[in-house]
Design a protein around this nucleic acid. Structure first.
Lengths: 319, 319
DNA sequence: ATCACTCATACCCGCACGGTATCAATCACC
DNA sequence: GGTGATTGATACCGTGCGGGTATGAGTGAT
């Protein structure tokens, strides 16, 4: 059994995601016939059918499902290898921290202060991205360490929880609900979050949508049991920044569930924050590639966990 | 930056391990000039020098060290993808358990009994191999779950410790040391283990040698800070089976450090077992690929940890 | 029954990968 | 310090394979 090639995996992933040879070929920037042939050759090489195709329907076999999953992680590993080597050769070493803006539980300034005193410390660069972008960034080598809310798909990553903080609901100060000191999730039925999901449903699949309303391509859509949808939504171009979110909240169009540390940074008249009894708290987590051997990452992890442990009794409640 | 290809990674790993283009080319079954050109092209593609070469000396740059490490894990991921897909398509699904013969802490019979009653259970197949083979087997998809002594290189794996058991020293009954009820490591200086290392040095790098005397190719030689040795020893063909080991022990040629559960299975006149005060115990660990989504693996892990938890107060002492 | 759609087949082409021959640089040895 | 051995780089060539175009064939919709 000779080894697979990256090209074959890329092709297969495209077809498996699109479930359509024509569209997959278009996405790959090639014609359909060579793609068909390549997939067929892949199946011959493995000795296993990966797709059941009629001229009207393409579906994954169980083996295809397995390969789709493993091929994605293998492709991640390959691009990560290239990117990390590239970076290691560049003149300016730095520690790239992936996070979503403001989602640091208020710890980052203190962490960075102490981190800079470490012997193994490197200059720090923040890689800000939307929800669901941090873990893939670690896997493909475009960041060295990430600060992100659990749960998330942590395959290939090492993980250290830093702190758990409650979330509040942000709603229009003029909303009748704002008159009450404390709410339940059920009270929020009918309201929607910035990403369009109903506020009283907490089952949003991780890695699919962004709190800011951007819909991301799921990098490894580990739908438990379900089969991945064939169509992959590109960025919906409805990106909301914080100012827009606040504006919409103020107008009563949406509500939002920021953690207290974010709230503390954005006091704003016209927006009321209230505790929600059954809203799960947010656990901020530190993650880095399991393959990392970088002393700079190790030092950062050490510093961050120390700071979090030292600070975890500080005022996490909010009036 | 276009994606790397498996071929490029294989080539680079070969050169980086051999630190010699000619030998690397021979190992790859090709001529030297195309290999030189391929590596050069890889460097051009990444925009980073990976090797410093004079006509007499080839050495890795820092970027090369990083790539060597990451390329190995990427290659593992690729072959694992192929192998697991292949397996998923074959008619007979089964759960392949990698372990070294007898190194199950005596748990395996009970684990298997209970496992077979699980709904998600599959027929079990044992994949026996020497020390250091289990973790690579998980990574390259030739086993689904492994039972192995910690510590080991666990990158890409999820891990669950099962039990910790003391080890004894096995020596010739006629050895003067056998007269003493308990020994120290220092007492054993001058004696050697089956793999040839001195018995009083407990710093043998994991994944390098086998207790049975086979020397394995290091799969991911994570020497902390040091540079990987250029020469990679193939199997030294000096494989010792248990009978040979016992024979050599009996003759006083070697000593051995089996855990008590192994000792219990191999009572043998002519061989004495004695506790060693400062000999670290052996922690038997369960490991499986982090990417595993198999219900059969999940059921096995559940069963094994339950059995280990239930049995961990049972008689682990001996003699 | 016909049309539209989509995957497979047939055939061709260009290029990139691998091979052979050779050069050039460095080290060892006297 | 000159000479030969070793080893990586360069030059050049042939071929196999990956990709393109044209077309066939099977299937579902109307």
């Amino acid at each position: 059994m000779s080894d697979l090639e990256v090209r074959q995996l890329r092709y297969f992933v495209a077809v498996a995601e699109e479930l359509h040879f024509g569209r997959a070929a278009e996405r790959l920037g090639m014609a359909q016939p060579p793609l068909s042939r390549a997939i067929r050759e892949l199946e011959r090489q493995l000795g296993v059918p990966l797709l059941t195709r009629t001229t009207r329907q393409v579906a994954l076999t169980p083996a295809g499902e397995v390969l789709l999953h493993d091929a994605r992680t293998a492709l991640d590993a390959v691009t990560a290898a290239g990117r990390r080597a590239q970076r290691a050769g560049r003149s300016e070493p730095e520690l790239r921290i992936a996070m979503k803006a403001d989602y640091d539980g208020g710890l980052l300034p203190r962490i960075l202060d102490r981190y800079r005193e470490e012997a193994a410390a490197l200059p720090v660069r923040l890689v800000l991205g939307g929800r669901g972008e941090q873990a893939p960034a670690l896997r493909d080598g475009s960041a060295d360490v990430a600060l992100l809310p659990a749960p998330f798909d942590d395959h290939g990553l090492d993980v250290e929880p830093l702190l758990t903080e409650p979330r509040l609901v942000a709603l229009a100060a003029t909303d009748p609900l704002a008159a009450r000191p404390c709410l339940d999730l059920a009270d929020l039925s009918g309201l929607i979050l910035p990403d369009g999901t109903p506020a009283d449903r907490e089952d949003l699949p991780p890695g699919t949508t962004d709190d800011f309303g951007v819909r991301y391509r799921t990098p490894a859509p580990c739908d438990p049991g379900g089969r991945p949808r064939g169509t992959v939504a590109g960025p919906r171009s409805r990106t909301l920044d914080l100012a827009q979110i606040f504006n919409l909240i103020e107008l009563g169009s949406i509500v939002w569930f920021p953690p207290v540390s974010v709230v503390r940074r954005h006091p704003r008249p016209g927006v009321a924050y209230r505790p929600v009894r059954d809203l799960p708290p947010l656990t901020l987590t530190l993650a880095w590639p399991q393959t990392s051997r970088s002393p700079a990452v190790a030092a950062f992890v050490r510093t961050a966990t120390a700071i979090a442990a030292a600070g975890d009794t500080r005022g996490m409640m909010w009036g």
